[in-house]
Amino acid sequence: MRNGLQWKERSVLAVATSLLFGANHILLNQASENYKRIGVCKEGFESMVRKPLFIEFPKNN
């Protein structure tokens, strides 16, 4: 069993996160930044997502 990603896997992952694909048609990097900033992967999706329950916060698990 190995820990972490091999250099080849890291380079593929870096490229894959900057490609436009998937159902939401948004870059994975952009979706991650949006989630940190507004709590959803893409602006306009706020009404489709519920707020997390108290028990779902990492500090409560």
Rank of each mutant, 00 (worst) to 15 (best):
W7A: 04
L20I: 03
L28H: 02
L5R: 15
P58F: 11
E56I: 10
S18H: 06
L20F: 09
G39L: 11
N29V: 12
N3M: 14
F45D: 02
M1D: 10
N29I: 07
S32D: 01
E56R: 08
I38E: 01
E46P: 06
L20K: 14
E43I: 06
S11M: 08
R2D: 04
E56K: 07
G22Q: 09
N24D: 11
K36Q: 10
I55G: 08
N60Q: 15
S18F: 03
L5W: 08
E9F: 01
K42M: 02
N60H: 10
N3C: 11
N60C: 13
L5M: 15
N29G: 05
K36F: 06
E56Q: 13
I26D: 00
H25L: 02
M48N: 09
M48K: 12
F54I: 15
L53F: 11
G4M: 11
R37N: 05
F57L: 13
N61V: 15
G39F: 05
M48R: 12
N3S: 14
N61H: 15
A23T: 11
A23L: 12
Q6A: 15
A31S: 13
V12G: 01
G4F: 02
R50E: 11
W7N: 04
S11F: 05
Q30K: 13
M1I: 15
N3K: 14
M48D: 07
L20T: 08
L13Q: 10
A31C: 06
E56C: 13
F54T: 13
L53K: 13
K59M: 14
Q6N: 15
K51T: 14
V12R: 06
Y35G: 00
E46F: 03
E56M: 09
S47V: 07
L53N: 08
N3P: 03
F54S: 07
S18G: 05
A16F: 08
A31T: 00
S11P: 00
N3W: 12
S11Q: 08
F45K: 02
P58S: 15
P52R: 04
L53C: 05
V49T: 06
F45L: 13
R50T: 07
E9W: 00
F21K: 01
A14W: 10
A16L: 12
V12S: 03
E43G: 05
M1W: 15
N3T: 15
M1P: 02
L20N: 12
I26A: 02
N34R: 01
N34Q: 12
F45H: 02
C41W: 00
K42P: 00
A31W: 00
L27Q: 01
Y35K: 05
N24K: 01
G4L: 07
L28S: 01
K36E: 06
L28W: 00
K42R: 10
C41V: 03
S32V: 04
Q30R: 13
T17M: 11
R10N: 10
M48E: 11
C41N: 02
L5E: 10
K42W: 00
G4W: 04
E56V: 15
N3D: 12
A31M: 05
